[in-house]
């Protein structure tokens, strides 16, 4: 039976957004954009907060190099003062003149490019406070949308993070985050980036919140708990497949309780489920494989080359052959 926990840890280190590298640059971009809006917008005033994978700490490095960061702008105004949500979004776009900026239906996106290749983008989500304490209304709609498509949508953008915090204990939560990252990297490696063919990252995150079960073992002698990411990931994928009847419906656990995969067409959904089936089969094959080398090759088919290939024997991988024993008699 294969475990490959060392490899999963390396894989996680390779794909996660770290505070010290990409995230730092993203933070700089974010701060520059927000400063610019504050300078130029001329009211209403707002406060900002991180949201999405940046806030959940489930972000992965994009395969195509297009890093993103989700920022919420909480405007100190009301729906009644801004009956047209697109009008407020347009004020944000106007304040960012000179940037490559796009007013999209769910948000305002600011792009940073090099030779027409996207490097970073910052998604600005425009909110006004709701009557319920802590809840917000999201400005939805774009220029030219018919009235029914424009709305102030009741939502709680921070609820997912809170749910992750309350559902799992510390070490299990970290395993849940790692497993979400693995799934997101699988998604990035196996689906086209454009359109709705790929399952949304938030959908995979919500699925994990719903069906993830920690896989771990306690070493009673050393008084340590060791996590088994391969088993946990396999368990989650199996659970997702079991709920695909035939569509996989994963609802946001908070208002507005949307099905996060609702935009996928029947065909897109069936491809998604089929690929999920392949992943499930691959994970099981890796779990049952007695040879760590071939198990790692199986996993690389699904997760790409950031997943390390096992070439040497496990003993050779252990470091420190001469250590201080600390024993005496």
């Amino acid at each position: 039976m294969t475990i490959l926990q060392t490899e999963f840890n390396k894989f996680n280190d390779a794909i996660r957004l770290g505070w010290d590298n990409e995230e730092a640059r993203l933070r700089e971009r974010r701060d520059a954009v927000i400063d610019r809006i504050r300078e130029r917008m001329g009211g209403p005033s707002f406060s900002h907060f991180n949201q999405g994978s940046y806030e959940l700490r489930t972000g992965v490095k994009p395969v195509n190099g297009d890093y993103d960061i989700d920022v919420g702008l909480r405007f100190n105004t009301t729906r009644s003062e801004w009956p047209d949500p697109v009008a407020l979004k347009q004020r944000v776009v106007d304040a960012l003149s000179g940037y490559k900026v796009e007013l999209r239906r769910p948000c305002v996106t600011v792009y940073y490019q090099r030779r027409n290749e996207p490097l970073y983008h910052v998604d600005l989500n425009v909110y006004v406070p709701a009557e319920t304490e802590g809840m917000l209304h999201l400005a939805v709609g774009k220029v030219g949308d018919a009235a029914p498509l424009k709305e102030w949508r009741f939502t709680d953008p921070l609820a997912l993070g809170a749910a992750l915090d309350t559902t799992f204990a510390a070490d299990d939560r970290e395993q849940c985050r790692r497993v979400i990252r693995y799934l997101k990297r699988w998604k990035d490696s196996n689906f086209p980036a454009q359109g709705n063919a790929a399952p949304k990252g938030i959908g995979l995150t919500a699925a994990a919140l719903q069906w993830f079960t920690p896989a771990r073992e306690r070493d009673g002698v050393a008084n340590r708990v060791h996590h088994d990411d391969l088993k946990a990931l396999s368990g989650l994928v199996w659970a997702m497949l079991a709920h695909a009847t035939p569509r996989l419906v994963v609802k946001l656990p908070v208002p507005p309780h949307d099905d996060l995969f609702r935009r996928m067409s029947e065909q897109e959904m069936s491809i998604f489920v089929a690929k999920l089936g392949e992943l499930d089969e691959g994970l099981r094959r890796a779990l049952a494989d007695a040879d760590e080398g071939s198990a790692s090759r199986t996993l690389r088919e699904f997760f790409g080359e950031d997943f390390p290939a096992v070439t040497s024997s496990p003993t050779a991988r252990r470091i420190g052959a001469i250590v201080s024993s600390g024993s005496a008699g």
Binding site: D219, A222, G326, S327
Partner: peptide, 24 residues
């Protein structure tokens, strides 16, 4: 080392001293 130990080192699992230190 426990098979799930992601960073196995040569040590006695019963030890009260953390691994990787010099005691003599």
């Amino acid at each position: 080392p426990h098979p799930l130990d992601a960073s196995p080192v040569l040590t006695n699992r019963a030890a009260f001293a953390a691994a990787g230190q010099v005691f003599t």
